[in-house]
């Protein structure tokens, strides 16, 4: 039986729509944390949203959710990984969209905005999985700048931002900016020794 982290749901009840939540996790618990964050958003709060997958392909994530009995067909996935794999975009899910690469950060922002414009949900979230994955491809300064734009864009539009992050794999500059721009922190990370 898959066990969710109930405390995350509790913490999420305290954030407003125009918040930006940094969710820290470790390598070993990343899916537990992800699922524990997503589930209350979908099931308890009845939100729609966009799941930006930079760490793994969207299909893998969808199947992981399906394996624990969670229906994510109402969530739109923006897959930044699969275009880099030949045949990776041939997927059986209509709710998966693609951006060519995680380095096309502006395209990610615009595509997310586009998907949200077509959303039928009253309340929406953007779920970034993950900042550390984005930092693999992008220059620290550019990613830091991007986070500023990204978070503020959605806060302004009253769209909840949830940013998954494995802190010990994220460059200090990005981490510092993330801490600065996010309005809430859910920390399920491993101990960081710097």
């Amino acid at each position: 039986m898959f066990e969710l982290d109930a405390l995350i749901a509790e913490q999420l009840t305290e954030v407003s729509l125009n918040s930006a939540v940094q969710v820290r996790c470790g390598n070993s618990n990343s899916f537990v944390v992800t699922a524990s964050t997503m589930l209350p958003l979908i099931q308890s709060f009845g939100m729609g949203g966009v799941y930006i997958s930079a760490s793994r392909g969207a299909v893998e994530i969808i199947q992981a959710f399906e394996s624990i009995g969670v229906d994510v067909s109402n969530i739109q996935f923006l897959d930044l990984v699969s275009s880099g794999i030949l045949g990776g975009t041939d997927v059986p899910y209509p709710n998966v969209h693609f951006v060519d690469s995680p380095i096309m950060l502006e395209s990610v922002l615009l595509r997310t905005l586009y998907i949200l414009r077509t959303s039928t949900f009253e309340r929406n979230f953007v779920f970034v999985d993950s900042i550390n994955a984005l930092s693999i491809y992008n220059d620290d300064r550019m990613l830091a700048e991007y986070l500023h734009t990204f978070i503020n864009t959605f806060r302004q539009r009253e769209v909840l931002s949830v940013l998954i992050n494995v802190p010990d794999q994220t460059p200090p500059l990005v981490l510092a900016n993330l801490d600065l721009y996010c309005t809430a922190l859910i920390d399920r990370g491993q101990v960081v020794i710097q």
Binding site: L109, D139, T153
Partner: peptide, 14 residues
């Protein structure tokens, strides 16, 4: 996009 052209400031570092 299907809804038309969408714009956002380009990242200064990019």
């Amino acid at each position: 996009t299907q809804l038309g052209v969408m714009l956002t400031p380009m990242l200064k570092w990019g």
